[in-house]
Amino acid sequence: MDNDPRAGLAERIAGEITLSSDPGATLRKWRTDFEVSQTELATELDVSSSVVSDYESGRRESPGIALVSRLVRALLDIDERRGGDHIRQYARVLSAGFDSDVVLDLQEYATTVPLADLYDAIDATEVVAGDRDRVSGHTIIDSIEAITRLRSEDFYRLYGQSTNRVFGFTNVSRGESPLVALRVVNPTPNAVLLHGLSPDELWEHAPALAKRDGFSLAVTTADIEDIRSELHSLA
C-alpha cells in the first residue's frame, strides 16, 4: 500500500490520462468522479472553462505531462479542501488489499441505514427481501474483475469492517456469476445490488438463491457515479 494515498492516487490518475487512447475522455471521467465541474477545475488552474472543455472534447491537442500533472494536482487540491473523501476512499480500498479496478468503492456508515431508504436513494428495485433490513456500509465491485482476479478467500476482505453491508456488482449481464460466487462466501452480506439490470433481465434462479441465503436482492439501472454519490451521502 502507498504510504501517501494522495501520491498514489495522483500517479494512478496521471498514468491513466497519459496512456489513454482518448486522454480527454479519461480526464473527464476523473473530473466527474471527483464531482468537480469544468468551471471549478478551470478556476483552480487559472484558465477559462473553455480550455478544460477543449481538452476533454479533443478539440485541443492532448495535454503534455506538465499539464497533466497540474490537472491532477488541481483535482486533488479541490478534494482535500472539501474534506478529502476521494483520497480517503482510495486509501480504504488499498488498505483492504485490493486494486481500485476491482473494488470501485468501500465505505462504512456512521450509523445503520434502513435498506428501504438506501434503495430509494439509488432508484433500486428490491426483488427479494432479506432477513435483515438495515446496513452499515457498502462495497461496490466490478464483477468481471472480481470474479477473474480474486480467490474465494479474498471475498471475505471485501466486507470491510462488517458483513452488515450492501455488496454492489457492476458489469453484470444477468447476475449469474456474482450470485454463484457468493455461494462460496459464508456468512453472506445483508444485501446484494446488481447494477445495469431491470427485474425482467435478472437470471431466473437469482431470487431463489437470495431467498435460500437470506439476503436482500435488488437491481438498478441508475448511473453508477450517481449511485456512489448517493451512497456516500448516507455515510
Rank of each mutant, 00 (worst) to 15 (best):
D85T: 03
H86A: 14
H86Q: 15
I87T: 12
I87P: 01
I87W: 00
R88N: 11
R88C: 04
Q89N: 02
Y90C: 01
Y90Q: 00
Y90E: 00
Y90G: 00
A91M: 06
A91I: 02
A91P: 02
A91C: 02
R92M: 07
R92G: 03
R92N: 10
V93E: 00
V93N: 00
L94M: 13
L94K: 15
S95E: 14
A96G: 01
F98W: 01
D99P: 01
D99M: 07
D99H: 07
D101S: 15
V102G: 00
V103S: 03
L104W: 08
L104R: 03
L104C: 05
L104E: 11
D105N: 06
D105F: 10
D105S: 13
D105W: 05
L106N: 00
L106K: 03
Q107F: 09
E108N: 12
E108H: 07
E108Q: 13
E108R: 11
Y109C: 13
Y109W: 11
Y109Q: 10
A110M: 03
T111C: 12
T111D: 15
T111L: 13
T111H: 15
T112N: 14
T112L: 13
V113M: 13
V113C: 10
P114I: 08
L115D: 04
L115C: 03
L115P: 01
A116Q: 13
A116N: 12
D117N: 11
L118S: 12
L118Q: 10
L118H: 09
L118E: 12
L118F: 11
Y119P: 03
Y119A: 11
Y119H: 13
D120W: 00
A121M: 09
I122W: 07
I122E: 08
I122H: 04
D123R: 09
D123T: 03
T125F: 05
V127M: 07
V128S: 05
V128M: 09
A129I: 12
G130P: 05
G130W: 07
G130Q: 02
D131R: 12
D131H: 08
R132Q: 15
R132F: 14
R132L: 14
D133F: 04
D133M: 06
D133C: 00
D133A: 07
R134W: 08
R134F: 08
V135Q: 02
V135W: 03
S136T: 14
G137S: 12
G137Y: 10
G137R: 10
H138S: 08
T139K: 04
T139C: 13
I141H: 04
D142L: 06
D142E: 07
S143V: 05
S143G: 03
S143M: 08
S143L: 04
I144D: 05
A146R: 02
A146S: 06
I147V: 14
I147L: 11
T148F: 11
L150H: 07
L150M: 10
R151M: 02
R151P: 00
